[in-house]
Design a protein around this nucleic acid. Structure first.
Length: 108
DNA sequence: CATTTGACTATTC
DNA sequence: TGAATAGCCAAAT
């Protein structure tokens, strides 16, 4: 309606859209997602946005990791192992808590 | 409205 | 190769 405005997507929602565009078997860095979402250097905000994902979401958050290829969680934590497992199921090898970005990095 | 926070990154040593 | 530091900036408190 004439609310004057359309539902302007929040930056969070824009981030989720970008993450959902990452194909299975590929990964992207937080900085890369931030840039693609038009946020510039808000790499940290990407992590926060993923942490605020609503229940029932279908965002492949596990395909987002640090630019070094290392998972963003403390090694051994529950989330860490979950992410590593989800990646492995997609064919992304996680060794020592890290992924070979040169191999699996998503290049749109 | 000022301060803290954070699933980061580039740089330096 | 890896550890420490500074810079980053919107959202949460």
């Amino acid at each position: 309606m004439a609310t004057g405005g359309v539902m302007e997507l929040s930056n969070e929602q824009r981030i989720w859209q970008v993450v959902m565009a990452i194909p299975a078997g590929k990964v992207a860095s937080y900085g890369q997602v931030a840039d693609m979402a038009g946020l510039g250097r808000q790499a940290r905000f990407v992590g926060r946005a993923l942490g605020r994902l609503p229940r029932g979401h279908e965002v492949p958050w596990h395909r987002v990791l640090r630019t070094t290829g290392q998972l963003a969680f403390p090694a051994g934590s529950e989330r860490f192992e979950l992410q590593a497992r989800l990646l492995a199921e997609e064919g992304v090898e996680v060794i020592g808590g890290r992924v070979a970005m040169a191999v699996h990095r998503w290049r749109p």
